[in-house]
Design a protein around this nucleic acid. Structure first.
Lengths: 185, 185
DNA sequence: CGCACCATGTAATGCGTTACATGATTTT
DNA sequence: AAAATCATGTAACGCATTACATGGTGCG
């Protein structure tokens, strides 16, 4: 799956594994992320499959840059993937919910404390979506005026993050109130 | 992480790997799931660590049942995990958002079609949370009246699912409207 | 007669993380 | 003087999925 993220970015412009990590952290990290090491190994596999190709750009005082670009084979693979509709809901994993499910023997106050920690984290995340993420998208969009349609979709992914965090905070508030009211001890 | 789910269930009652799969599918599958094969291998690892123990229950005409139960060591491990607050937000992966992010070259109609498929799936999921999941929890709660506090927390996890799907549908409606209005072609 | 359910497990493969290994340049 | 940034990669390990392998019971 990371393969498609890499192909997607390389369709905008050729770049290195290092660049790909930077740009993912800035843009897709809220719904897709990867470690540097995985990016390097995945690029290697993509090159073996002929979906990308690389050229060495010599540098002094630094390791040479290995610049990857997408091939026609890679473009086809990306398009095929984009065209195939997702026919299923992906199963999620939410560690907090798993803990909560089994948390009855935990004390009421300890439980409220744990949910309070999450409330802080999600509040901060919401602010990030509303300000920083928005700014990053505006900046990309103004740098590439030919990609106006893209910017609309980028903002749709940002809105998902914003709405998700709003929902999360509402759920936390509701859950903390229920625990306060109905749990003994 | 699956280890804690298994320990959590075994704290209610001893059971087999098969039973654990059934009960997970009925209760935690919306935020934690596992394949049968992974459950079997994980139970083996847990036994090697002394956190669970198993006894063979002979049967005729069927494979013997291997019934697992939690040990004091396992109970301690579970409690330690439950007591440690989650200090981070878990990074998520949403394939649909990844596709949407790179979907500008996809035709407007194809895109709306793909989002329409998701709308159907999530509407059905929302109904499930509102009816079937609710019923399952009520049934468990009435079967184990000593676990009233647990039932409150189980319902909190169900509410997360319900609120998540409501949010998802609202986001899909908004996004489809934006694409309809702002994307050309 | 065929399908779903009960019930166990192993092997191969893939995806992802952590740790290891190096080193100059730029910023604070 | 220390920390962050630029820039590459490999190796070991762990978690998760898919495929393989078996076979009786009960229901429609």
């Amino acid at each position: 799956m990371l393969t498609y993220a890499l192909l997607g970015f390389l369709r905008y412009a050729p770049m290195t594994g290092y660049d790909l990590k930077q740009i993912m952290d800035l843009s897709t990290s809220n719904f897709w992320h990867a470690k540097q090491s995985q990016i390097y190994t995945t690029l290697k596999k993509l090159e073996a499959k002929g979906q990308v190709q690389s050229e060495i750009e010599p540098q002094q005082g630094r390791p040479d840059r290995r610049v990857y670009s997408i091939t026609p084979v890679g473009e086809q693979a990306l398009t095929d993937w984009l065209d195939a509709p997702l026919e299923e809901i992906e199963p999620r994993k939410e560690t907090l919910l798993l803990k909560l499910f089994f948390a009855a023997p935990t004390g009421k106050d300890a439980l409220l404390g744990q949910l309070g920690v999450q409330r802080e984290l999600h509040q901060r995340m919401l602010d990030t979506y509303r300000h920083e993420t928005r700014q990053v998208i505006d900046q990309f969009a103004s740098q590439m005026p030919e990609h106006q349609a893209d910017a609309i979709l980028w903002d749709a992914t940002r809105r998902f993050g914003e709405m998700f965090e709003e929902m999360y905070l509402a759920w936390l508030a509701e859950t903390m109130a229920v625990i306060e009211a109905k749990l003994d001890e």
